[in-house]
């Protein structure tokens, strides 16, 4: 193939439950809708759930394991999204598997996938052990996602240190579950606090948004249906920034008055938080 080499991006966080899988699913769909051939790889086979978020849980037959063992071809293992055929899912393994793939296995399978893709997004398991190391070994660049909370930021810092020593670069930051009102009243780490501390370029800000849960329930990522919710727009913007588009970042806790009021109303409406 003559096209540019695929971007292989690790989505990781250190701490669990901060939004890696949600980001991977939404970013995958958003990139696919922008015309990029995208493969999302679930590197967490013990606790798979990328398939659920994408609504593909009933369509998985094979995994990377079978491809590596040559009991099936790669095309058979890639689960193509019906509405968005530019997107395919590949699970690393199934929960019955007892052993992790080795870093070499991960590199091999990612190398195979990368030949037929523009973007490979690797949904990393939480933690900094085996699963993380394997996934990092196969990645070129990374997005670290965190929430504005002390424990999540601390764990993100650990992960950034490990990525640096492994030569994964660039590493960019997504700040998730931002609550503009709490930030404005300084009852939450601010956007600058987090970027100062972690010293990473910010590629996206995602507010706390009820729609995330609704979309998860349905197995339809927010970026699949243009419902215009704040989180949906945030994920779309991350996809555009990754492709090199200059999309300004707006700190929701600092937005201009009129805009802020509108945004706050919308968040109030969608999240019922305050």
């Amino acid at each position: 193939m003559t096209s540019a080499p695929a971007r292989i991006i690790l989505i990781c966080s250190g701490k669990g439950g901060v939004g890696k899988t949600t980001l991977t699913a939404n970013l995958g769909i958003a990139l696919a809708r922008l015309g990029e051939r995208t493969v999302v790889l679930d590197a967490d086979f013990g606790l798979r759930n990328l398939d659920l978020l994408l609504g593909l849980e009933n369509r998985i037959v094979y995994t990377a394991q079978e491809v590596l063992a040559e009991t099936c071809r790669l095309e058979q293992a890639l689960v193509k999204h019906k509405q968005e055929p530019n997107l395919s899912l590949l699970p690393a393994g199934n929960p019955r598997m007892l052993e992790w793939l080795t870093p070499e296995d991960m590199q091999r399978i990612v190398g195979m996938v990368a030949e037929r893709a523009d973007y490979v997004l690797i949904d990393c398991p939480a933690g900094i052990e085996e699963g993380f190391k394997n996934a990092a070994a196969a990645s070129r660049e990374a997005i670290v996602i965190t929430t504005p909370e002390v424990s999540a930021v601390r764990d993100a810092d650990r992960v950034i240190g490990l990525l640096n020593t492994r030569g994964v670069s660039p590493v960019q930051l997504v700040l998730n579950r931002v609550r503009p009102r709490m930030m404005a009243s300084q009852e939450m780490l601010s956007v600058e606090d987090v970027t100062d501390i972690l010293a990473l370029p910010l590629v996206g800000l995602v507010v706390e948004d009820e729609q995330v849960i609704v979309s998860t329930n349905r197995g339809e990522p927010l970026t699949l249906v243009d419902n215009g919710s704040p989180a949906a727009r945030a994920y779309q913007n991350i996809a555009r920034r990754l492709r090199g588009e200059d999309v300004p970042l707006e700190d929701p806790s600092k937005a201009r008055k009129g805009l802020r009021a509108r945004l706050m109303n919308r968040i109030r409406r969608t999240t019922g938080l305050f």
């Binding site: 002390v150 601390r154 810092d157 300084q186 939450m188 780490l189 601010s190 501390i197």
Partner: peptide, 19 residues
Amino acid sequence: KPSGTRAKERLQLVLAHDR
């Protein structure tokens, strides 16, 4: 102090040690 400020101070300290 607002708790966000405390959070930043505590993080800076703990990260200096972690790192």
